[in-house]
């Protein structure tokens, strides 16, 4: 209040230090009433309150509060946006995992199919080889058989001539003299059949 007194002093005619206090009191309260109830100060208080509070209200309404509101708004939007972004990324990651799983399953399936195919092909080839070999063996067998029968028939055919010659030789030894070939052949034939 010393500050206030000093100013009061400046506004007043010079007065002694002791009189400053009373001088201030005299300002508005000549009968020494309680300052807050001194009605002579009311017009000034009301006017300046109206001016200052009015300006304050306008300033807050026009400038300060919209600014704070926009800061809070921007922050809220930003947080919501970030949350959305995070949700979207999570979805993407989930999709990627699902795709990967699917790919993996596909690959497994494919690998199994290839292996199966290879096994089947190998089996079929082996089978074919076996068939071919068997067929070759079969033909060779048949050939051999036919040759055997040929040889046999040839041998059988030769048997007559040998028998004739042998019979001729035997007869020549036993009987002496020449034996008619024709007769020999007939005789051998007769024995043979």
């Amino acid at each position: 209040m010393f500050v206030a007194s000093a100013y009061a002093q400046a506004a007043e005619p010079p007065a002694g230090d002791l009189h400053t206090e009373t001088g201030v009191a005299v300002d508005h309260a000549p009968e020494g009433s309680f300052p807050p109830f001194d009605s002579s100060t009311f017009p000034s208080q009301l006017l300046w309150l109206a001016i200052t509070f009015g300006l304050f209200y306008l300033f807050l309404k026009r400038v300060a509060l919209p600014r704070i509101a926009s800061i809070l708004e921007v922050r809220r939007d930003r947080i919501a946006q970030d949350l959305d972004e995070a949700a979207r990324m999570k979805e993407e990651a989930d999709a990627a995992v699902a795709a990967y799983e699917q790919e993996l399953a596909e690959a497994r399936r494919k690998a199994a199919a290839i292996a199966q195919e290879a096994r089947d092909a190998a089996k079929a080839e082996a089978e074919a080889e076996r068939r071919k070999v068997e067929a070759a063996l079969e033909t060779k067998l048949e050939e051999a058989e036919s040759r055997i029968s040929e040889i046999k028939s040839a041998a059988l055919a030769d048997v007559g001539t040998i028998a004739e010659e042998t019979a001729g030789a035997i007869v020549e030894q036993l009987v002496g003299g020449r034996v008619d070939k024709k007769a020999l052949a007939e005789a051998v034939k007769a024995v043979q059949s």
Binding site: A25, P35, S44, Q45, W48
Partner: peptide, 26 residues
Amino acid sequence: FQISRWIPIEVGGLDFSFTNASAFMV
């Protein structure tokens, strides 16, 4: 709680002075 006039203003017999109270409102 004393009010002291800083800048005396008087309009129509009413005292609208700029006082220490006005200053602290500002």
